[in-house]
Every structure is written in structure tokens, then in C-alpha cells.
Amino acid sequence: MSSMVSNPRLEVPTTAAPDMARENLIHFDAVTAKFGQLHAMGPTTLSVRRGEFVAIVGPSGCGKSTLLNMVAGTLRPSSGSVHYDGQQVAGPNSDVGYITQKNYCVPWRTVEGNVRMPMEFRGVARAEMDERVKYALAQVGLTGFERAYPKQLSGGMLQRVMIARTLAYGPSVYLMDEPFGSLDAQLRTRMHAKLLEIWQKTQATFVFVTHDLQEAITLADRVVVMSRRPGCPKLVVDINLPRPRDVVDIQADPAFGAYVKQLWHALDVD
């Protein structure tokens, strides 16, 4: 699904070369983040290709979420620049879907109403909206819960509502910040399978922040290991495991174990 609206809040293309922009959807160019005295991140240079599934792992406070916020345009880099689709990010980027541990359901709307909301913001036609809501809820296994209110749902279900909501409006990029951190192991595995399915169907780009190495390897094409604060990429590993992946079987793959070991050591040394 491609983006439905052109994004007026992005500035005119500046420095990024056109051919590079075509391949790289997101490009961080020597970005740093400082919060007052705290030097949280950088300098970080990193590119995410169109349609790629990138996982970012690292210790707490190394600026993983900061990177996502910069793509979403809710945080400006202290120095350096972030390019999205060849254009410098200068304000809220509504071409992204942002999913965190916190659920942003509004309590006065039903599940259906919540999934509908971003499409209302974007002026999607009613008939198409209904269709997309139905499809998205079916994708996350929430058919039958259309009329339930958020207060009635468990944490795992709310998280699925958030995913359905994002899926329904179809952003080009899914920014996910430890989205399954509060779910139990079984549900989390199920969500992994669902997520890979969605990734394959939508061909969207996924940037997935986690501190769970297994989760990162299971899902991603590429895992970026961040160093301790001030965080910057210290190791980037291509995960050459076959696709489509079975989220359970893949863990038995010897190569999987080798990746875990490699990443673990990279995390461990500092």
C-alpha cells in the first residue's frame, strides 16, 4: 500500500543525491542528539532501504527511540540531517506509522472508530474506509470486536488495534518502538508472525527498535547494534536467513544461534 497523501510538511530536496534517494528511503547523515547537557546519541550515519526490515538493538538510553523520532519529525537532530524519501525531514512526517508500547487508542471511540481515525484525518472516502477497517481488523484477528471500547480490551488486544490502525491507513514506513515489550512470550511470537505477514503484503519499510536479540534476528533483514550512550551504530549485521520465515522454526536454525552469539558479543563488549 502506498501512501495516500502527499506530504506537505517536507522541505524541498536538498543535499541527497537522486539515485541514492531512490534506493534509500531513510538516510541519517551524521546526526547527533543532545538533551541539555546529556549527549544522548551520535554521530550516527545510517541508511534504510525501501522495503527493508531493519532492527535496531542496543542498551537502554542509547538513542534508539531518538532515531525513530527523527524520522517521524517529532525531534530535530542537534546536528546532522535526516532525509526521508529524498527530502529533509522538517516537521511531523505523516507518511510514517508509529507504534510504541503505549497505546494511543482514544477511549471514547470503539475499536472500529479508533482504526478509522487516521483515515478520517486524511480524508479517505467512507466506503474505502469501511473496507480498510474490515481488512485491517481481520489481519490482526480482531474481527468481531468492532464495537468494543478500549476499556474492555486487554493490553495485547489494544496493541493489535494499534497495528490495525496503522495497517488501515497504510503508511510507507512502520516505526516500531518495542511494540511487544509488554506482551507475554506466546502472544509476542504470534505477533511476530503477523508482523512478517503484514510486511510481506504491504512491502512497507520497517524500522523496529527492541532490546531483544532473538526478536531482532527473527524479524529483520539487517540488525543495527548501537553502542552505549552516546549511542552510535557499532555493528551492522545482515541476517541471511531464508524468507518467508517461520517465527518458531527459525530459532532452531544453526545460523540463528550464530547471529545471537555475534550480536550478543557486540552488545557485551562496551
Binding site: 505523516s94 494511543y104 482514544v106 481515525m117 484525518f121 486524511r122
Partner: peptide, 21 residues
């Protein structure tokens, strides 16, 4: 305010934020 920031990211205009959030 997080909810408002999130709505903005979802494409909400200032009008929508008033009336829907």
C-alpha cells in the same frame, strides 16, 4: 499531550485535533 502529538503524526489538522481529540 502525547495523544495530541500522535494524532498530529497520524495526519490530523488543528481542526481535527480540536474536534476529534
Amino acid at each position: 499531550r502525547d495523544l495530541v502529538a500522535n494524532a498530529r503524526l497520524l495526519g490530523a489538522s488543528p481542526m481535527s485535533i480540536w474536534f476529534k481529540i
